[in-house]
Design a binder for these strands. Structure first.
Lengths: 195, 195
DNA sequence: AGCTCAAGTCAACGGGCGTGGACATATAAA
DNA sequence: TTTATATGTCCACGCCCGTTGACTTGAGCT
């Protein structure tokens, strides 16, 4: 093979990018380092050189995707609508896609022994905590978990299980119900919404 | 090795049982046929002989677990409470554990290319349809998907992500909120509960 | 131009995987 | 008791994996 141009920073990014793409579509176990390196136009051995191991590469991908979750000026008031957007895949802004991909990247590799700890940590730090910190009142983590359960479940149903009964009918009623559920889950009072 | 006693039906069941146990705890990709055969006290080659392939074995495990979901006399009225039981892991009856394991078995191997089709079919046939058939009114599949999203999400959070913010505080409030969410998700009217 | 070292490639290793064919043995019929 | 067949074991093949060490080549400096 003719060796590629030598630019350490660029190839590192290229590998990170192709790894992110691969890990997003297939799970941690089902993607090989040769696939990732191939996409980046680089030899496999560079993975060990740059990231130490496959786990290291995966960790770096999760770490690199950090800080983009909830960044687009989401407040306590707009949170339910924002979650509804993610859950119904209607992207208001370009950033929503990034957020959804982050979540999906985490969910895809959730049940992989090698990636489990990394995934769990990333989830707690990058998606659970931000939401919990955004809402105030009692048991913020519990209420955030409740809302995120709905988001996670619907994402899995639509993306992985390919069920998508949410789009067989009109989207608006679904969005309406979703919004109500998110508001109820995040609300301080157990029943309904109490300002 | 001293050959085991020769009983085709018994060994077949033993393999099915150990496979079910393994597939429940690890995902499809992360369990080897040698593990399963080892647990059953049998040689690996019998998997091919009895089930054709690993996929065949997995399919048979899913098929064998069929018909136990929602079997314990759950009605439209008791459905929300039953879902809450599953989501909070409080087992009223012994059967609840079976139902939860079924769902978990499906979720664990959901993102495995080889098992995806099998898992998706099993989910639709064995968990989504029963729930959709139990509720009446418009868009039963959509409402069932909504409720199952919550169940799936909370199950993943608790079992795979090991978050379990649901049990850091008292369980009763969580169950109360869960119940309200399930009822709202399954309700005919978009807002709240309307008998 | 020549030198140097980071940057990249190549080949191979040890290991685990699913699978298939050849062989052994317990069971049941003759 | 002999025979036949279902049942189970053993062995090895081919494949893909992550990782490593030795080699090659490009870029930048003097």
């Amino acid at each position: 093979m003719s060796p590629r141009v030598k630019n350490a920073a660029a190839t590192r990014e290229a590998m990170l990018a192709s790894a992110g793409r691969r890990f997003l579509q297939e799970s941690y176990e089902n993607v090989g380092l040769r696939d990732i390196a191939g996409d980046a136009g680089v030899d496999v051995a560079l993975v060990s050189r740059y990231f130490g191991s496959k786990e290291g590469l995966f960790r770096e991908v999760l770490r690199g995707a950090k800080g983009e979750w909830l960044d687009a000026g989401v407040t306590r008031e707009t949170l339910p609508a924002w979650l509804t957007c993610l859950a119904t895949r209607v992207h208001r802004q370009e950033d929503d896609r990034q957020d959804l991909e982050r979540l999906l990247l985490i969910l895809r590799s959730a049940s992989s022994p090698k990636a489990a700890r990394i995934v769990n940590d990333s989830f707690r730090e990058n998606v659970l905590s931000p939401v919990a910190n955004l809402i105030d009142g009692d048991d913020p983590e519990m209420r955030a978990s409740l809302a995120l359960s709905l988001l996670i479940g619907s994402t899995i149903l639509r993306t992985i299980m390919e069920v998508d009964a949410f789009s067989t009918c009109d989207v608006d009623p679904v969005r309406e119900r979703m919004l109500a559920l998110f508001e109820s889950a995040l609300a301080q009072a157990p029943n309904g919404e109490a300002a």
